[in-house]
């Protein structure tokens, strides 16, 4: 197979290609047009691009073929769609670009988008967000559901897109660049708590898969594997990918948030300036 064969989509999805093109297009447009002072540096742009390209790569290249026919590659795909890709995108802080783009939307349309804001705020409630984050992993890995999702093309796409969108929501909540002191962003303590809380059930699930004696996910057995590999090895690798890297990402997230919190520790809170002004 040539290099092109590896790069072209295995299962061509116009909606996916269009979505990624729009995201990159709007991001690029925002970067070029926005005021120089707010523009993210090249490092942040690079991190954003790596995150987006990784997500695209596991959905619309030959990687997707292996994800459909090998359990452990499928787990790798979800690790990128639900963890690593959105992690990098949120960490790159595209907020100034988004703010600029939002300012360019006509007021009439902006008003029509208000209900979206309600849905967003509902989904970003810490309880809902962490429940969704862990719940989706458990839902799609529930053996009967997983079997159907791997057999049905529609369900398969819904599964992958739901993982990506939920990953973006969750990591955006965690890496919200706004300071909780000056805005209604989630407090650092709560962010750390969420990261630790979502890690536990993922570790339990991963360990359960790793230590299962029988075949938990026989759909790969039934529908043929991409290459001959003992089913136990495939399941073991898949379980490890569900267990260890997500736990490590939670710890990494906690470290990043701790660093941010410690940096803000020494600074005076923004409102104390105002207080000073009124008292003088």
């Amino acid at each position: 197979m040539s290099v092109t064969d590896y790069l072209i989509p295995y299962d061509f999805s116009p909606v996916t290609i269009l979505s990624f093109a729009l995201v990159l297009g709007f991001y690029g447009y925002g970067l070029l047009k926005m005021p120089e002072a707010d523009r993210p540096g090249s490092g942040r742009i690079l991190v954003f691009l790596i995150g987006v390209i990784m997500c695209y790569g596991v959905m619309q290249t030959r990687f997707d073929y292996y994800s459909q026919y090998m359990f452990f590659v499928h787990r790798g795909q979800h690790l990128i769609l639900h963890h690593l890709g959105p992690f990098l995108i949120a960490l790159s802080n595209p907020l100034p670009v988004m703010r600029y783009l939002f300012s360019r939307i006509k007021p009439g349309i902006r008003k029509a988008l208000t209900p979206l804001g309600w849905i967003y705020r509902f989904l970003q409630h810490p309880a809902i967000a962490s429940f969704l984050f862990v719940g989706l992993i458990y839902f799609w890995l529930w053996p009967p559901i997983h079997f159907d999702a791997m057999l049905s093309r529609d369900l398969y796409w819904i599964m992958n897109w739901s993982m990506l969108l939920d990953g973006l929501l969750f990591w955006w909540l965690i890496f919200d660049p706004r300071s909780p002191v000056a805005s209604d962003a989630l407090g650092y303590g709560k962010r750390i708590l969420l990261l630790a809380l979502v890690a536990l059930p993922q570790m339990v699930l991963g360990a359960t898969i790793v230590f299962s004696r029988g075949m938990v996910y026989d759909v790969y057995e039934v529908c043929g594997r991409a290459w001959p590999m003992p089913p136990e090895t495939d399941q073991l690798l898949g379980g490890l990918l569900t267990w260890i890297p997500p736990a490590m990402m939670s710890i990494l997230g906690i470290l990043i948030i701790l660093r941010r919190a410690m940096r803000e520790d020494g600074k005076p809170a923004p409102y104390s300036e105002e207080l000073k002004a009124t008292h003088s």
Binding site: Q68, Y69, M150, S152, Y156, C223, G224, R225, A226, P228
Partner: peptide
């Protein structure tokens, strides 16, 4: 055909 029915085949 095999892709249509979410399966695959390979040669050793």
């Amino acid at each position: 055909l095999s892709k249509r029915y979410r399966t695959t085949f390979g040669y050793d």
